[in-house]
Amino acid sequence: MSLDAATVRRIAKLARIRVNEEEVSTLQNELNAILGYVEQLGEVNVEGVEPLSGGAQMALRQREDKLTDGDMAEKILANAPDRIENFFAVPKVVE
């Protein structure tokens, strides 16, 4: 499959990407190269290869769920523009 310049402009418009006329031919070549690679993938022999059903069946390691304050209040607030005790001070936004 090969894309023409009008199709490249349409793809850019749908993706809401501003493309100058000078960039259209470059993008056209790049997109055609990508599509060519995808066509090559279709030629790969996958006979006997089971489809990957995803990582959803993998068991994840669980850690103990414990609450800590991190003991890093001074490090965290070191660059704060304004603070009150161990909290960020922010301007009032609600009247």
Score class of each variant (00 low, 15 high):
E43M: 11
V94I: 12
K92D: 13
L77H: 09
D71N: 11
K75C: 01
E74Q: 14
V46T: 15
R18S: 14
M72K: 15
I17V: 15
R83S: 12
N29T: 07
V94P: 02
A12K: 04
E39V: 13
E50P: 09
T68I: 05
Q62D: 09
K75M: 12
E50S: 13
A6N: 14
E22Y: 03
D71G: 14
I17E: 10
P81H: 10
E95S: 15
R83Y: 03
S25E: 13
A5Q: 08
S2K: 12
G70N: 03
V19Q: 07
K75P: 01
I11E: 01
V46D: 09
M58Q: 13
V46A: 13
Q62R: 12
E23L: 05
R16P: 00
F88P: 06
V46Q: 08
T7A: 15
D65H: 02
R10H: 10
M58Y: 05
L52D: 13
E47N: 08
T68R: 02
L60C: 08
R63P: 03
G70R: 02
L3R: 06
Y37W: 09
E74K: 13
V94C: 01
G55K: 13
M1T: 09
L52E: 13
F88S: 06
L27K: 02
D69K: 13
Y37D: 06
R18P: 07
E74P: 07
E21W: 00
G54W: 01
E39P: 00
F88R: 12
L31F: 10
G70E: 01
E85L: 14
G36A: 05
L35I: 11
N32F: 04
V19W: 02
K75Q: 14
K92V: 10
G70C: 03
E85N: 15
V24Y: 02
R9T: 11
I76H: 05
E43N: 11
L3D: 04
G36F: 02
P81L: 10
N45G: 05
L3K: 04
K75S: 08
G42W: 07
N86M: 11
M72F: 06
E85C: 04
